[in-house]
Nucleic acid binder design. Structure first.
Lengths: 246, 246
DNA sequence: CGTTCGATTGAGCTTTCTCAAGCACAGTGG
DNA sequence: CCACTGTGCTTGAGAAAGCTCAATCGAACG
């Protein structure tokens, strides 16, 4: 639910801290010239996170922006009594840097071994200053995120548990296919059942039960605890859109 | 849940279609020079809507952008079976124009007699082209919207019915106070109970019942069916943040 | 081989929803 | 001026989806 989408590939100069990443692009610059991408990357320095390690907390001052190059992050907000809402997951290629009033609106925490390319906000801002087309791109990505957030509001406000799970798996599938550029049958779930529950506004028990139901209906299969196979994409799509209820 | 916040006031030239509006500003240009605001306004032409009249539908091609000058709009998305999620309300000063792939992500419908200042997207884009600081402002507003959307996800995913209503009233109160620049005790509800329900992920019956409960707890009072008085703002805030449950 | 931690399953409960009836107020026509 | 009607709001009773609490399972790891 934050700046997203991986794009064009860009070569990195030898010796750069981001060398060895999964990704050779800067997501937010999908439309920018390769020269510009390389230049931006040069300004960054590498940062690594272990599973469970936070990158920053909700309310922290936002002094850096990041590109995720390897791993997965979950983004979440907490209520004072501990209720958690996961607002999104970040994958390689995603850009992390939108903030209001220079404060982070959510906590970002690694789900796996994670690697980021970090830019100081000042340097990033001056880079954007020098490349006005970057500004447009930032706006485009924010607009995209906003549309995704509205879609998630429909899910949280109006969909049943089964519809939420179906929508979630299809969204992960779409993303995997966009990343690989090929059609996929298997979807990796790098997050726990609790994380899925907190993203979909459910409990982990309900997630487990609905998962069992989707298996019994032959819509999906569990290849492993954290890998699902999509058996009936059309059926899953109908379910996700609420067409199975009647 | 779409571009928002009213700001600086700008005089409009005599004879302009927007003359007679509630607002003398273009929200999205909060930081821009007055000269620029006036110039943008000159490019616009007026449009009026009656209650219940749609401005555009979800999926329609997005050929215009708008500034709301008078009235209220509700923005919503539908599931195929008719379930509705209201993603936001628009008030005078709000800007309506963020879209992805040139298609509207939601339906916009008037709740009252409404007046807008309309710009063709092409002219708006070339105006933005000529005023790069406008691009930054668009981005800033989109980022603000995104933060609000994430807040709404917490509400929809994790809050109880009472917490949702309390949060909603406080958000309306905040907005009213920002608009008037003064402290307020009364909040106008220009939308129906069903609209509130569809915004908060509830049913209209639950909204009514929770309203009755809030009255009994002396947190609010109904001045009229569509005007609430805030009797205990602190209590309402505690409730909205989930601090009353324990 | 035992321990641990996440995932699953079960039973009962709570919140919210659904369906239905009653109420209040605005607009209309006699 | 008042009954009539429609629409939206409120209230009630029963149902259901999903939650809570608790027990069990199972894979990973020491």
């Amino acid at each position: 639910m934050v700046l997203a989408t991986s794009r064009n590939l860009t070569p990195l100069p030898a010796g750069h801290p981001c060398l060895g990443c999964d990704v050779r692009s800067v997501a937010v610059c999908g439309v920018l010239e390769c020269a510009m991408l390389a230049q931006l990357r040069l300004m960054g320095c590498a940062q690594k996170l272990k599973p469970g390690e936070p990158l920053f907390h909700e309310g922290d001052e936002s002094k850096q922006v990041y590109t995720l190059t390897k791993g997965v992050l979950k983004l979440y907000k907490l209520l004072p009594d501990g209720r958690r809402q996961v607002t999104g997951f970040m994958f390689p290629g995603d850009f992390l840097g939108i903030s209001v009033d220079d404060a982070h609106a959510f906590t970002a925490e690694a789900l796996a071994d994670t690697q980021l390319c970090k830019f100081s906000r000042g340097r990033f801002d001056s880079f954007v200053e020098e490349h006005p087309e970057m500004e447009r791109e930032l706006y485009r990505v924010a607009a995209h995120e906003l549309a995704a957030a509205q879609q998630q509001m429909v899910l949280l406000g109006r969909k049943t548990a089964a519809e939420r799970l179906a929508s979630f798996f299809l969204a992960l599938l779409d993303r995997a296919e966009r990343a690989s550029g090929a059609s996929e049958r298997f979807v990796k779930l790098p997050m726990s059942r609790s994380d899925i529950a907190d993203y979909l506004g459910l409990t982990k028990e309900t997630v487990s039960r609905v998962l069992a139901m989707l298996k019994k209906r032959r819509l999906i299969r569990l290849e492993a605890l954290d890998v699902i196979e999509i058996l009936d994409r059309e059926g899953l799509t109908d379910l996700a859109e609420g067409l199975m209820g009647e």
